[in-house]
Write a protein that binds this DNA or RNA. Structure first.
Lengths: 139, 139
DNA sequence: TATTGTTATACTCTATAACTATA
DNA sequence: TATAGTTATAGAGTATAACAATA
């Protein structure tokens, strides 16, 4: 490889950028785990707590907690599974959908400013890097 | 901007990649905050708890906790400041330096595999993106 | 008085172990 | 018996408020 230090540099840069973006959450927004669950539900529709736990690679009891918090806020609904009485179906409420739109707008706004200040070449680099980061994350 | 969705896509990709990298920590390694403090000390030499808290953008009591944990593990030393009795000087022990080398090797190994499987163009893209992510993180 | 660091306390997210209900 | 989810409990990381020591 041309640059043997690239892995370390990439790791550091990604971790620092992630922390910076996370800190941009703002005053009263949802926590990161809460927001992430809403995004999964937006993408995939209804999911069980078990499926959500697997997607987030956390243990089921942790997801129970997160989902209960969202349910108390009225952002998700917990319903019985139609055929399997053991399962619970979690889905977004209308209020939850609105929260996703609002949070996304707020979190993106800060990044959008930075990106707008970049050159077209730099934006192209980031767009390409998005694909590569996704590949790394999905592996 | 050519791609108005870029901010959202970049945010998601960075957050997912960061979580994936963090999960790669392995069985018995240091926690993320602990390791990050060791890396700062490696880069900057001795630092006070206050300086470390500012670098990590956390509150001083939280850093006290992290530093104390590292001190109990024998990875850092806490010494009196030579001229200002209020301050504490935190520095790496030899054991701490070894821990940084070992942890870095372990954490980078996984990423290195992925990067090695990429094309030269893709590696060049990531190298350029590192610069841009650093700029975002530092802002 | 202002600054540096710590202690006390609490909240969030995570985990493991044990339990309930259903398949 | 096995599976889905929850409850009980604990540990790590963070925060704010109050305090001690020093400048």
């Amino acid at each position: 490889m041309a640059n043997p230090a690239l892995a370390g540099e990439l790791r550091t840069a990604v971790m620092q950028a992630a922390r910076r973006i996370r800190n941009q959450r703002g005053e009263v927004g949802l926590s990161d785990p809460q927001y992430t669950v809403l995004v999964w539900l937006t993408k995939k529709g209804s999911l069980t707590p078990g499926q959500l736990a697997e997607l987030e690679r956390i243990q089921p009891p942790s997801m129970t907690r997160t989902v209960n918090g969202l349910a108390e806020l009225g952002l998700v609904a917990k319903d019985e599974h139609p055929t399997d009485g053991r399962q619970v179906v979690v889905s977004l409420t209308e209020s939850g959908r609105a929260e996703v739109r609002e949070t996304r707008r707020r979190r993106d706004a800060w990044l959008t400013k930075h990106i707008a200040a970049m050159t077209p070449d730099e934006r192209a680099t980031l767009a390409s890097a998005v694909e590569l980061l996704r590949r790394i994350a999905a592996s």
